[in-house]
Amino acid sequence: MNFSQSKTWRWLALALRIVLGAIFIYAAYLKLHESWRLFAMDIDAYGVLPSNGIWLELVARTLPWLEAALGVWLIAGFWLRGSATLAAAMMLGFIGLMTWARLKGLNINCGCFGTGEKISWITMLRDGSLLAAALLLAVGSHCGRRRARIEEETA
């Protein structure tokens, strides 16, 4: 697929950017309009960060803002290669953690969209779809950029 010139790709990319961006902003909003400590309790349940260290507070306080920023960048199309890649990496991290928690038999909250949502095959399928969308955007924007560079060099 010619990512830079295909009309279909451009429309698809626009739709993916808006949907993915909106979901990231919504997820951030749900966490930010409550105390960061609620999100901290969800993170703590995974058992990957020390409960009484600064890392838990750092992640609980900053991750939602990163989600919000990514959401805005995706919708605006700003720094698309970077934001799409970062979004894909983030989703991969989330899915990895959820899979690990399930394998450990932990019956805990996902922490994806505020508190109270348990990790289930539905949450994993949903996040898997978001990962696929982010990957598609990331690959598309990288390929598009590469093609543009090649065309510049041969011109």
């Binding site: 400590r37 309790m41 703590d44 349940a45 409960s51 019956n107 805990i108 109270g116 348990k118």
Partner: peptide, 13 residues
């Protein structure tokens, strides 16, 4: 209303 399943860490709660 906030829901917690299991016991959260006391200090954070």
């Amino acid at each position: 209303q906030y829901r917690f399943e299991g016991s959260p860490k006391w200090e954070i709660f």
